[in-house]
Simulated assay, not measured.
Amino acid sequence: MRILTAIFTLLLIAQTAFAQNAYKKPGQANLREMDREIRKYMRDNNIPGGLVAVAKGGKLDFVRTYGKSNVELDVDVDENHVFEIGSISKQFVAAAAMLQVEEGKLNLDDKIEKYLPNLPSEWVGVTVKQLFNHTSGIPDYEEIYTYDVYRLRMTPEDIIKIASGRPVDFEPGQGWYYSNTGHYLASMIVERVDGMPIGKVLESRIFEPLGMSQTRFADPEAIIMGRAEGYWVNRNGELINRNATETSSTLGAGGLLSSAADMAKWDHALYGNDLLSEESKKIMWETTILPDGRDMEYGLGWDLELDRGLKTTNHSGQVAGFVAYFSRYIDEDVAVIVFLNRYRVSSRTVKDIMLNYIMPGS
């Protein structure tokens, strides 16, 4: 029995050591093969341009760029270009909320009507935390109005009217359903607490302190250096333009754009305590367990799941002209970044192609 126990212990140690050393930076030959697979996926799906990167220790370990950032002007994708990141935006609002919690300005168990008094009566009793972890039961305005809502100038009253046109999906805390409305309302609460627009909150609390100078809300009217254009295809499969996301239609539910270098800085900041305390990160990354025992593998603005046996905190993003993926492999101190400038394609597929080359043994 002692021998078996010793063998089991050695195997466990070996497995742990392997899991913590799964990342392997590809050589030039493997990078070229990875490029070939990614380009084929892009070609098969009429994706104009893309960028993939791996961050380690706060710096970019490598970046690969493909195709066109702007088709009409024939501009190649550059590693410094900025892409819309869709729902990856949610994690930044969650982090800002946790900073407010640390300062005693916000309580996640507060009822949302404390901050937003003029809500539909069906929504009364929902907590701030339930907005962030998708257990509020409040219908998703994007699902009702489609992704085209992100191209329109909207007021909070407009968003609330759209979402309240459908009955709640379930009583607060009794189910799980992805709701952009929840994160829109959460953004409004974060705004109210700090007394400034969500863009200014994120800039002052996160982007400026971390040196994330290229991360901001998309804003179609703003002049943004290196902004990639977004695209879709029409019914004939022809590439068409998609205008940039309107900040007012998303707030922190999905309105940010960023660069690979900025996402590397964000990843690195989440390992230390300079931005968020360990307790705040623990709360943010605590998985959601429903009353029936189901584990939804979702925290506050983050997906929490194993990827090829590796622990991750991650999220995908999609808006009218872009998809993105950001996955942090915790035990590796490695993050994978995928930006593609076409709507309704799979950033996860490109991420999986990358994993075949950067974590071949996983």
Rank of each mutant, 00 (worst) to 15 (best):
Tyr150Val: 02
Glu297Gln: 13
Lys265Ser: 07
Gly182Ala: 03
Pro26Val: 04
Phe92Ile: 00
His134Ile: 04
Glu246Met: 10
Leu304Phe: 04
Val126His: 12
Val82Asn: 03
Ala260Asp: 11
Arg242Lys: 13
Asp194Gln: 12
Arg308Asn: 14
Thr5Phe: 14
Arg2Ser: 10
Thr127Trp: 11
Asn133Phe: 07
Glu102Ser: 10
Arg235Pro: 00
Arg348Ser: 07
Phe339Gln: 05
Thr247Arg: 04
Asp333Lys: 12
Ser347Met: 02
Arg151Pro: 00
Lys40Met: 14
Arg39Glu: 14
Pro167Cys: 08
Leu290Gly: 09
Tyr325Met: 10
Glu102Arg: 01
Met34Glu: 05
Ser179Met: 07
Met284Ser: 08
Ala253Val: 02
Ala29Lys: 15
Ala55Gly: 15
Ala6Ile: 13
Gly57Ala: 13
Leu276Met: 01
Ala264Glu: 08
Lys24Met: 14
Ser248Ile: 04
Arg328Phe: 00
Ser259Gly: 01
Met196Gln: 13
Trp285Cys: 01
Glu37Leu: 13
Gln15Lys: 06
Ile3Trp: 11
Ile7Tyr: 10
Asp194Ser: 15
Ile223Glu: 12
Trp232Pro: 00
Gly255Asn: 04
Gly230Thr: 03
His183Arg: 03
Thr287Glu: 11
Gly86Pro: 03
Ile337Gly: 08
Ile3Leu: 15
Lys24Arg: 15
Phe8Lys: 12
Ser277Trp: 08
Glu143Phe: 12
Thr250Ser: 13
Leu10Gly: 06
Thr250Leu: 12
Leu270Trp: 03
Ser327Arg: 11
Gly137Ile: 06
Leu210Pro: 02
Asp219Lys: 09
Phe170Leu: 13
Ser136Glu: 08
Val350Ala: 02
Gly195Pro: 08
Tyr329Gln: 00
Gly252Ala: 07
Leu275Asn: 06
